[in-house]
Amino acid sequence: MSCSYRIAVFASGQGSNFQALLDASRAAGLGSAEIVLLVCDKPLAPVAERARQAGVDTFLFNPKDYERREDYEAEIAAELERREVDLIVLAGYMRLLTAVLVDRYMGRMINIHPSLLPAFPGKNAIGQAWDYGVKVTGVTVHLVDGGMDTGPVVAQEAVPLLADDSLDALEERIHAAEKKLYPQVVSWFAEGRVIVDGRKVTVLQ
C-alpha cells in the first residue's frame, strides 16, 4: 500500500467536514493519513460529487436495498478490510451503526459532535444549547461505542456565546471549530499519539 495510515470517511450530506479533511490532507495537515474511501448512504448527496471531483474512491449504497443494517454494514466492512483502512472518520453520517462495524473498529472509529459532550447529545445540538441559554458550547471529537454520542472524548474545543449572537452566527463559529479540530485529531491518530484506557483518552505530546 502506498501510504502508512489509511482513513475512510463516512458522510451523508453536503460534505463540509469531508472537504475540510480533504483540504487538510492536500496541505499535509493530516500527518501521514490519507483519505482512501468515502462511504455514503445517499448516492446523490453532494459529498459523493466532492469525492469524485477529488479522485477519492467511493462506496455508495441505498439502505432500502437491504433487509437489515447489518447486511450493508457487512459489505462496508469487507470494503474497508480490502483497503486496509486504519481509521473510520464519521463526518455527518446520519445512520446509527451496528456491532458489525462498531465492534470491529472499536477504538479506531471517531465522530465529531457540535456540543461539549456529554451536554446536548443527539440531533440539533447547536439549537439545544441555544435554547438552553448556555454561555459556552463547542465541539467534541469522540470515539464511537455504539451509543448516541456516548463514546470516550478525544478532544474538545469551546465556543462561547456572545452577547450579540444570533443562532446563525453561533452555528458558523461551531462549524469553523469543527473544520479546525477534526483534521488535527486525525493527524494525532496517524502519528500514534492517541492512547485509550477505558474512558480516559490521552494524547501524547
Rank of each mutant, 00 (worst) to 15 (best):
A33Y: 07
N124G: 01
P46F: 05
H175N: 10
A11M: 00
D65T: 09
V89M: 02
A176S: 13
E172D: 15
I195R: 15
R50I: 08
I195C: 14
E73H: 06
K180Y: 05
G55N: 11
G127D: 06
Y182R: 06
L37G: 14
A74W: 00
A91H: 03
V136D: 11
R108Y: 10
T202L: 11
A45M: 11
G147I: 01
R104S: 11
V89R: 05
E172W: 00
L167M: 11
E34K: 15
D164E: 03
V185Y: 14
R52K: 14
L44R: 13
V144W: 04
V89E: 10
K179V: 00
D71A: 15
Y105R: 01
A24F: 03
G192V: 01
L87V: 07
R95Q: 04
A28I: 00
K179Y: 13
A77C: 14
Q128C: 12
T58C: 15
A163I: 04
L38A: 01
R82H: 05
K179W: 13
A20N: 07
I88K: 00
T98R: 01
P43Q: 10
M106D: 11
I76R: 09
G147C: 14
V9E: 07
L162C: 13
P121V: 04
A125S: 11
C40A: 02
S4P: 00
K200F: 09
R173V: 03
L96W: 13
Q184G: 11
R82W: 01
R104I: 09
S16K: 05
G15H: 09
F10Y: 10
A163F: 14
R95A: 02
G146R: 11
R193G: 07
I126M: 10
P160N: 13
G122D: 10
Y66A: 09
D71I: 02
G192L: 02
E172S: 15
H113D: 02
Q156N: 13
A163T: 08
L167T: 02
F18A: 06
K179H: 15
L90I: 07
K123W: 12
V185T: 09
M106P: 00
V201S: 07
G147T: 03
G133Y: 02
V186I: 14
L162W: 12
F18L: 05
Q128P: 01
V85D: 04
D23W: 05
L116M: 06
P63M: 12
T137W: 09
V47L: 01
S12L: 09
F61A: 12
A8N: 07
L37Y: 07
V89G: 06
A119I: 08
A48C: 14
L143E: 09
R6M: 06
D103A: 07
V36P: 04
L167N: 10
R108I: 01
N62F: 14
E49Y: 00
S2C: 00
T58H: 13
A129H: 10
Q128E: 12
R52M: 00
R199A: 13
P160D: 03
M106T: 03
V201P: 06
V47D: 08
G31V: 02
F18E: 03
K179R: 14
P121R: 02
V185Q: 08
V139A: 12
L90W: 01
P160K: 04
T58V: 10
A20G: 03
R52E: 15
V39M: 06
I174L: 15
